Amino acid sequence: MNALTGMAGGELAEPTTRPYSKWFDPHPRLGISMIDHLYNRLDGAYPHWWSANFASQQAIDNWAESWVEAFEDEGITPEDVAVGLRTCRVRYQKPPSCAEFIQACKPSADPVPAYHEAVEGIQARRKGELGAWSHPAIYWAAMLLARDLMTQSYGQVKDRWAAALKAQLARNEWADIPPPAPALPAPGQANLSKEDAARMLRELDALGMNKAAKPGEFDHLRWARRIMQRVDAGDKSLYALQIANAKEVLGLT
């Protein structure tokens, strides 16, 4: 049935004037517009319940214009609608409202499952893996809060996470998810060539960082002396506790 040009068994309604949208264009493969196709799919998923919502052709036209306007505002794509139809089958026993259907189209907008996906994705990337990302917005939101997501509970980050995810989803366009940085080898597992090892030793020697201290030469109080040097130089960034500890170990208190 072509839902927007006449109800089954009825006369064709007078054509209405609508703002242009691709959702009203005839689809070459479907033979009808995408919004017509969506009406038919929902009518098939909710037999009798769906069509019972529309008492006239004008009611169908009103539904189509309202939903298409919402799709345009929210950046809903045909691919999103396919996701929405699958989600509705398991989430809603009765026909969804416009808001419910849009939420079904973008399940990644739910911050709770997106949070768990983000945590697992960050862990995977730290191992040198790409991670499983259902939507690029989750990845980019996760990168903004990566440290907090890995060190704090969901209760501590849920508001910031929800805000970051919402902001990313609102962008409607996202850069590609980059490949992960190579994972660092575990201690003792590095495969370093003799040439690279020699080069690193030369660089450390040049920086004065590879000189072995003779017994009794290592200054265990160097950290305290450096703090006091910074105090004498007028460094105001030191904490009072740092200064007090340095003075104590140096016998200056």
Results as ranks from 00 to 15, higher is better:
Val112Gly: 01
Gly131Glu: 03
Gly131Asp: 02
Arg147Thr: 10
Ala146Arg: 15
Ser153His: 06
Asp159Trp: 13
Leu144Val: 06
Leu144Trp: 00
Leu130Lys: 14
Ala118Tyr: 01
Ala141Cys: 11
Arg160Gln: 14
Glu117Thr: 05
Pro113Arg: 03
Ala142Leu: 10
Tyr139Cys: 02
Lys127Val: 10
Ala164Cys: 08
His116Asn: 14
Arg125Gln: 12
Asp148Gln: 15
Tyr115Glu: 05
Tyr115Gln: 06
Ser134Ala: 15
Val157Met: 04
Pro113Met: 04
Met143Gln: 14
Arg125Tyr: 09
Ala132Gln: 03
Leu145Lys: 07
Leu149Asp: 01
Leu149Met: 00
Ala163Phe: 15
Arg126Trp: 10
Val157Tyr: 04
Asp148Gly: 13
Met150Glu: 08
Trp133Gly: 03
Gln152Tyr: 15
Ala137Gly: 09
Arg147Lys: 12
Val119Thr: 02
Val119Arg: 03
Tyr139Asp: 04
His135Gln: 07
Ser134Lys: 15
Ala124Ile: 08
Ala146Leu: 11
Ala162Gln: 10
Ala124His: 07
Gly155Phe: 00
Ala124Gln: 09
Ala132Pro: 00
Ala146Tyr: 13
Ala162Ile: 08
Val119Phe: 01
Asp148Lys: 15
Gln152Gly: 11
Leu130His: 12
Tyr139Phe: 11
Glu120Ala: 15
Leu130Glu: 08
Thr151Asp: 07
Glu117Pro: 01
Ser134Gln: 15
Tyr115Asp: 01
Tyr154Trp: 13
Gln152Met: 15
Tyr154Ser: 06
Gly121Cys: 01
Lys158Arg: 15
Arg147Asp: 11
His116Arg: 15
Ala162Lys: 12
Leu130Val: 13
Pro136Val: 08
Leu145Phe: 06
Lys166Ala: 15
Ala141Leu: 10
Trp133Glu: 05
Ala146Phe: 13
Val157Leu: 01
Gly128Glu: 06
Gly121Ser: 03
Lys127Arg: 14
Ser134Glu: 13
Lys127Leu: 14
Glu120Val: 05
Arg125Pro: 07
Gly128Met: 10
Thr151Trp: 06
Ser134His: 14
Ala141Asn: 10
Lys166Glu: 14
Val119Met: 02
Leu130Phe: 11
Glu117Gln: 06
Glu117Ala: 02
Ser153Asn: 08
Ala167Phe: 06
His116Leu: 14
Leu145Arg: 09
Glu117Leu: 05
Ala124Ser: 11
Thr151Tyr: 06
Ile122Gly: 02
Met143Lys: 08
Glu129Tyr: 11
Trp140Ala: 06
Asp148Trp: 14
Tyr139Trp: 04
